[in-house]
Write a protein that binds this DNA or RNA. Structure first.
Length: 766
DNA sequence: TGGAATGATGTTTTT
DNA sequence: CATCATTCCA
């Protein structure tokens, strides 16, 4: 049993489990990845064919790391053959093989969120609906939610509950948009992210021979981060696992943080119901963090109602208490953290890569970025706009997509006139109309003389034909050339490289270099072999599947010694010796959007739990009293989560947030800390975070001039003298409306009477 | 047709 | 404040 050496009792039992359903409930830092890797290694050691093991992870990076680790135990050749990846990437691959069953080309395009939104926008316009009411963003969310619950467009339209909800919301025609959107995707030979799961389910549901085939193929199934699977994913597992029941899921309900994406903790409970024989293993010993951190995290998560009882403990040292720091502003917070990293780095002889700064929203990264740069501390930001989202990269990839699948309308629109080749808006409008008329892709209009719009004149039509011929020319090498060869050829012959080269500004040069980097990545890709198909050339179409599902976190960080900046969501599964959890303010963390129900708040709390348990040696919490948001200065109260940590684990700030002026934690707290309504949204929830005028006193709060956000409307009232950037001094006559849409009528001697929305007008109180 | 200037609009988290 | 989209002008 050497495969199981070095594991503790519980880990060994779980990793040694051979056949039959099993579930591992694993506390943070308890070595669940170790269990997974050792179990797979053990299976292979016992003679299981790696090709018959399906292992699903949450990120590509996790898959890669796990493969590496298994490779180190059983050898790379074996490890390479495991079907290991994210749900999306594994099933995209399978969909490609089986695509003709559902009337898709095997080179179907995977639309990203932007593409989806753009299609939805078009459909809304096409139906003559108001995009103020039917906001593409939220419609997309609605459709995505439906797909994640395996509700197709037709089901959606005939589901009385859903239709009722939509009518209630005054948006009865979402079902039509959904249908139109799906039709457009089909026409373009495209799938969105959710389709990768949805269509896989269709495949397994409608084609018993396929279901049988994959049930036989995947004799062993393992799922990591099971608490974050949604219904569509749950059903795939259930279907594939039904024949042999060799299903192993690993997860921690306390770390479920993706319910906004349809993840459902219920899946853990369902699992036990579906497989009554399932053996449950609990991993409760934490090897990662100090006793202080583990116990602090425990006290916080204990406040959640929904949870599986667990007793996470550690044999590690007590370690240092958790520092809490109060900053005056977001920039101040940035310099505090940067300074603290500098100090710790020299005092504890730590390296930059041992530090992480974790925040709730990507937008918070800036202050830290600036301050770290100032101090020459190397850092890397994860998330935000990734490499693959940059314009120049997306442009080139759009060409690739079009070559692989010319009916990809979004790709077509993106590059038909870039670099400029005189195909303008009017021309494209006419093309679009023709495509809608014939219910076909733009490309089909282009290549079928019967569909040529009458109003397209010779010159414009000629240019379009040239474009089409060029794309077709590239396509001839699609299946023979390597991804790199054809990619390089395309970059050159479309004039894209030349276009970028013209720009000599630093940004322009960077763009050129980015494209070079993409091509270098393609070269590397082309040289690796595909385990499922070792002799085949790795084509552009192969590359596209990978690239569509790659995220920023997947870019290899090499052995870079840098401070990591990322959202807490992105930090899931990672660990760092020193962790700074920043922006711990009411309305930011917990997010303002998550204060409506107990369930939402509990998810925020789990998020905080995840953040805290990333830390190995030392955690630091910080919050800022003021922060720019939407370009406006906002005042904040410290997050309730700080208070939820038992005080014995904390080093409160030197200026004690709980005792001293100007900030009295307790009294501030009691004034706004309201019990949570347990369900249902209640119109506009009472706004927490408002400081009572009486305890503002003459101290810090007053010097932060209100910038006239609705939130601060309490201070602006009738009779007050104010100053406006453009109109100068004036006097408030009256206020009306509810926050955040308070409207003020103000008389300005210089400009007369004006009506201003406090949200927008920057009024300074005099 | 293309580019620059101006105005609306939006921030949670991600495959 | 930033990005995006639309509009306006050459």
């Amino acid at each position: 049993m050497q495969m199981l050496d070095g594991l503790n009792g519980a880990q060994k039992a779980a990793a040694g489990h051979l056949e039959g359903p099993m579930m591992v409930v694993a506390g943070a830092g308890s070595g669940k990845t170790r269990v997974l890797t050792h179990r797979i290694a053990h299976l292979i050691d016992q003679g299981v064919d790696p090709f018959s093991i399906l292992s699903l992870t949450f990120t590509n990076k996790a898959a890669r790391e796990m493969k590496d680790r298994i490779g180190r135990i059983v050898g790379g050749a074996e490890a390479r053959n495991i079907w290991m990846g994210t749900f999306h990437s594994v099933f995209a691959r399978i969909l490609r093989i089986e695509s003709e069953r559902i009337n898709y080309p095997s080179n179907f395009t995977i639309y990203d969120t932007q593409d989806s939104r753009s299609v939805i926008k078009d459909v809304i316009k096409g139906l003559g609906l108001d995009d103020k009411l039917y906001k593409p963003n939220s419609i997309h969310g609605r459709i995505s939610g439906a797909k994640n619950n395996l509700i197709g467009a037709a089901d959606y339209a005939r589901n009385p509950d859903i239709i009722g909800e939509d009518q209630q919301a005054g948006r009865p025609r979402i079902a039509e948009i959904y249908a139109g959107y799906d039709a457009r995707l089909q026409r373009s030979g495209a799938m969105d992210f959710d389709d990768l799961l949805f269509k896989t389910n269709v495949l397994l549901r409608d084609f018993p021979d396929l279901l049988h085939k994959y049930q036989q193929k995947f004799a062993f199934i393992l799922v990591d981060e099971y608490q974050d699977t949604n219904f569509a994913q749950y059903m795939i597992i259930r279907q594939l696992g039904a024949a042999r029941e060799n299903v192993c899921v690993v997860g921690d309900d306390a770390q479920s943080i993706y319910s906004f994406r349809g993840a459902n903790i219920q899946n853990i409970l369902n699992f036990q119901r579906d497989y009554p024989d399932c053996v449950v293993y609990k991993l409760e010993q934490n090897y990662r963090s100090t006793k202080n951190i583990v116990e602090a995290a425990n006290t916080v998560i204990a406040k959640n109602q929904d949870q599986i009882q667990k007793d996470v403990w550690t044999g590690n040292d007590d370690g240092e208490k958790i520092d809490v720091h109060r900053a005056l502003s977001d920039n101040d917070e940035g310099s505090f953290v940067a300074d603290a990293i500098l100090t710790t780095r020299s005092r504890a002889q730590a390296e930059s890569k041992e530090f992480a700064i974790l925040y709730r929203t990507n937008a918070q990264s800036r202050a830290f970025e600036e301050q770290l740069r100032k101090r020459n501390v190397p850092y890397r930001i994860y998330g935000g706009l990734s490499f693959y989202q940059r314009k120049e990269i997306k442009d080139l990839i759009a060409y690739f997509r079009l070559v692989a699948n010319p009916t990809d309308d979004e790709g077509f629109k993106r590059v038909v006139n870039y670099p400029a080749r005189g195909i303008g808006k009017t021309t494209m409008d006419r093309m679009t109309v023709a495509a809608a008329q014939h219910e076909c892709a733009l490309w089909d209009v282009l290549r079928d003389p019967m569909r040529k719009p009458n109003d397209l004149k010779g010159a414009a039509w000629g240019k379009l034909q040239d474009f089409g011929t060029m794309i077709e020319g590239f396509a001839t090498q699609l299946n023979t050339a390597s991804a790199f060869d054809i990619g390089h050829h395309i970059a050159q012959h479309t004039g894209l490289l030349r276009e970028l080269h013209k720009d000599k500004t630093p940004e322009g040069v960077a763009r050129y270099e980015n494209v070079e980097e993409l091509l270098a990545g393609m070269k590397e890709f082309s040289e690796q072999e595909d385990p499922a198909n070792p002799d085949a050339v790795r084509t552009l179409a192969d590359f596209l599947i990978d690239v569509a599902l790659l995220t920023d976190a997947d870019q290899d960080d090499g052995d870079d010694n840098k401070v990591s900046l990322m959202t807490i969501h992105a930090a899931k599964g990672l660990e760092f010796p020193y962790v700074y959890i920043v922006g711990l303010e009411e309305n930011l963390f917990p997010s303002q959007m998550a204060l409506n129900t107990r369930e939402e708040l509990e998810e925020e709390r789990r998020l905080f739990y995840v953040a805290l348990t990333r830390a190995e040696r030392k955690a630091t919490l910080s919050y800022a009293l003021t922060r720019y948001r939407w370009g406006q200065l906002m005042q904040n109260e410290p997050s309730r989560f700080i208070e939820e940590v038992d005080e014995q684990y904390l080093n409160l700030p030197v200026v004690d947030a709980r005792r001293s002026e100007p900030f009295d934690f307790n009294s501030a707290r009691s004034s706004f800390y309201k019990p949570m309504p347990s369900a249902k949204k209640s119109g506009t929830p009472p706004r927490p975070g408002m400081r009572k005028v009486s305890d503002a006193g003459a101290s810090s709060a007053a010097q932060v001039e209100t910038q006239g956000t609705g939130d601060r409307a309490g201070q602006i009232e009738a009779g007050v003298e104010v100053k406006h950037a453009r109109f100068g001094k004036g006097k408030v006559l009256k206020l009306e409306g509810d926050p955040p849409n308070v409207k003020a009528t103000v008389f300005f001697p210089s400009a007369g009477q004006k009506q201003l929305l406090l949200k927008f007008a920057k009024l300074e109180i005099l």
